[in-house]
Design a protein around this nucleic acid. Structure first.
Length: 622
RNA sequence: GCCCCGGUAGCUCAACUGGAUAGAGCAGCGGACUUCUAAUCCGCAGGUUGCAGGUUCGAGUCCUGCCCGGGGUGCCA
């Protein structure tokens, strides 16, 4: 038996699918046009209906013009499930034509045994090179909850894709270029010259503050001025606003000049920019590390790295007659979309231009078959425009490929506070990601002290960190990413419900069994013990375990990590019920004890592997 | 104005992309601990899936039109 064949036998859905497909082809030979019929096998929701079911009869009834139960009957008559399942007959058909299957206990044991391998049954897919846009920090800005989502969700996608054998390249598209950055550079320069800031000691907090000041200073209150003029609010108000507007225009002009210097490689300005870059990225990568997100310096690919290609990109668009002039600017028009601005009337480029260059690099240089953007949902229109334009311009065509690489936006919603408005501090500032992690750790330490006072201080700190990060990340991953989600400390750190801590706790309980088993000297030999799936709780556990490989695949397909969370939560719950009803160490027979130990071990490994897909680490104790 | 995304139990969320009686957790009520870590488990109660039509053997899921909320919308990124 080949490895591939051994793997193929693993998933009951596929195994049953093959048998059902054969039965359908046999039963309706000559009556069905065009290829194989999907046997529509799915695990049964309700154990009363069996373990698996085929829903194929109903849609077939339509094309065949027969009553669905007749179709089901004809399928069952031709069905050869061999020794996989208990015998099938008319009583296997229910409702409008569901065909219910119950696996034999021995078959179930064999399948679980096959799952119990190093890869846990996860099948390597046809290998692709996949570029994932993650994190997306901006220079001189603290990371906030928006970056948390891109980082955590993006990293989870990457890990899941890697688990399936793909080559994943993370790209942190750092916002490190353009007028806003030049504004901060200009401000940093003037502050340093005035002796108000020490360039050797500058922190991200300093830069964040300068950013806000600079932005404030260079945004002219022309609306205010117009209002004052229109409503004649007095010479004093008018003079103040005129001064503000004049000052802002001056600051803006200065920033533009700084940008020109930066672009032309002025040594002093470039050094200041480099300072900005180093300070920001140092803090960003440190935060990624604390979050156990696998994003490092080598993944950084800032907007600045495309600065010399923007003219060329636009030239290609012109050569291909895709870009046209409109009001002095250059736009690309795509069917059903707003025009995409790729060059301003003053000759400057826009973020669409940079993103087009990035698509080209990712596909042609990095060799991406699939490019995924884990970015805020508000960018949806922007990405539609970029993708459409990139495809027309040939930027999405991988060298030697037959078709364009897929470009996908995996959007996520906002993080809201308990009041339902964007998550901010009381004073209306964005919450710093590093502060968020600090607070999560403090809260986790308090809870840990309450629940398990015997732990040593340093172990508690370690546990608090792991639990805090798990709670924070899991909260972000466990609901459908497209929706906004409500940030709630108590809920994410709760040990009941669909939370990180609950899953960690389940894992810890299993590990505890093995410590105890070792103390009692009864741990040997469970790895290869015969599995005895007899009790209903054992059976349910086995059935849930078998769904793991398909779950990994579905997360990779849909880019929805919350499916993994839902699965792991169900696994943990099913295990807890098993654990409640089926004594392990005190099992009645040696055979049963070893079998259950093996189930425990397998469950722990699936939990750990699934959490690893999400970028969450496990613990031995908590 | 146009486009995109949401609307499911009092609250926070699921529902394997059209399948059987819409499921969890919290909050409420009632049970099970000299434990394999009770940070758990069992039970009760809680629903016109925003509204109205339509397609289908079957709709929370698909199509149309409304209502509510959020977001986006050529010279910021």
């Amino acid at each position: 038996m080949t490895q591939a064949h051994a793997q193929q036998r693993l998933d009951p859905v596929e195994m049953l699918g093959e048998r059902f497909a054969a039965a359908i082809a046999d039963a309706f030979a000559g009556k069905l046009e065009g290829g194989a019929v999907d046997p529509l096998i799915t695990p049964s929701k309700n154990p009363q209906h069996g373990d698996y079911q085929s829903n194929a009869a109903m849609p077939l009834a339509k094309t065949l013009g027969m009553p669905p139960r007749e179709v089901a009957k004809a399928i069952v008559e031709k069905l050869d499930l061999g020794d996989l399942a208990t015998p099938m007959d008319e009583s296997s058909i229910a409702g409008p034509g569901f065909i219910n299957v119950r696996l034999k206990p021995e078959t179930l044991a064999e399948l679980v045994g096959e799952l119990d391998r190093p890869g846990l049954g996860v099948k390597a897919e046809e290998q692709q090179t996949i570029v994932v846009d993650v994190c997306g920090v901006n220079l001189a800005k603290q990371m906030h909850v928006g970056h948390l989502r891109s980082t955590v969700i993006g990293d989870a996608m990457c890990r899941t894709l890697e688990k399936l054998g793909h080559t994943v390249i993370r790209q942190n598209h750092v916002g490190d270029w353009g007028l806003p950055i030049a504004m901060v550079v200009a401000k940093l320069q003037s502050e340093a010259k005035a002796g108000r800031i020490d360039l050797g000691k500058v922190t991200l907090d300093d830069l964040d503050r300068l950013y806000k000041v600079a932005k404030q200073e260079s945004s002219a209150d022309t609306k205010g001025l117009k209002a004052v003029e229109r409503f004649q609010l007095g010479p004093k108000a008018q003079a103040e606003l005129e001064a503000q507007v004049a000052g802002a225009n001056e600051a803006l002009e200065h920033a533009k000049q700084t940008l020109v210097k930066l672009q032309s490689g002025d040594a002093e300005i470039v050094a200041l920019w480099q300072k900005l870059y180093d300070v920001t990225m140092g803090a960003c990568l440190e935060t990624c590390k604390r979050l156990q997100a696998n994003i490092t310096a080598k993944d950084s690919a800032g907007e600045s790295s495309f600065r010399d290609q923007l003219g060329e990109i636009v030239q290609i668009l012109l050569d291909k007659k895709l870009a046209e002039e409109d009001g002095g600017a250059l736009v690309v028009r795509n069917e059903g979309l707003e025009p995409t601005l790729v060059r301003k009337s003053d000759g400057g480029y826009l973020y669409a231009t940079t993103d087009l260059a990035a698509v080209r690099k990712r596909v042609k240089q990095l060799g991406a078959d699939r490019v995924i953007y884990c970015v805020d949902a508000r960018q949806a229109l922007h990405f539609k425009q970029v993708f459409a334009t990139a495809k027309k311009a040939g930027f999405a065509h991988k060298i030697g490929a037959n078709e364009d690489s897929t470009l996908e936006h995996a959007p996520f919603g906002m993080v809201l506070g308990e009041d339902g408005r964007p998550f901010k501090t009381r004073s209306g500032e964005n919450v710093k990601l590093s502060d968020l992690i600090d607070e999560a750790e403090q809260r986790a330490a308090v809870i840990s002290t309450e629940k398990n006072p015997d732990l040593a201080g340093d172990e508690r700190q370690k546990i608090a960190h792991t639990v805090a990060v798990a709670a924070l990340k899991y909260a972000d991953l466990s609901s459908d990413r497209i929706k906004d989600y409500v940030f709630d400390w108590d809920r994410m750190l709760a040990f009941e419900g669909n939370t990180g801590p609950y899953l960690l706790y389940t894992y810890v309980r299993i590990r505890s069994i093995f410590r105890k088993a070792e103390e009692q000297g009864i741990v040997a030999g469970y790895e290869s013990a015969a599995l005895a799936i007899n009790e209903p709780e054992e059976k349910q556990l086995a059935l849930v375990l078998l769904r793991y490989p398909a779950t990994v695949a579905s997360v990779a397909r849909t880019l929805e990590p919350h499916r993994m969370c839902g699965y792991l939560y169900e696994l943990a719950g099913t295990f807890s019920r098993f654990f409640e009803h089926c004594p392990v160490l005190k099992a009645e027979t040696d055979v049963s004890r070893l079998s259950r130990l093996r189930l425990c071990d397998l469950t722990a490994r699936v939990l750990a592997d699934g959490l690893d897909c999400l970028g969450i680490q496990t613990l031995e104790r908590m």
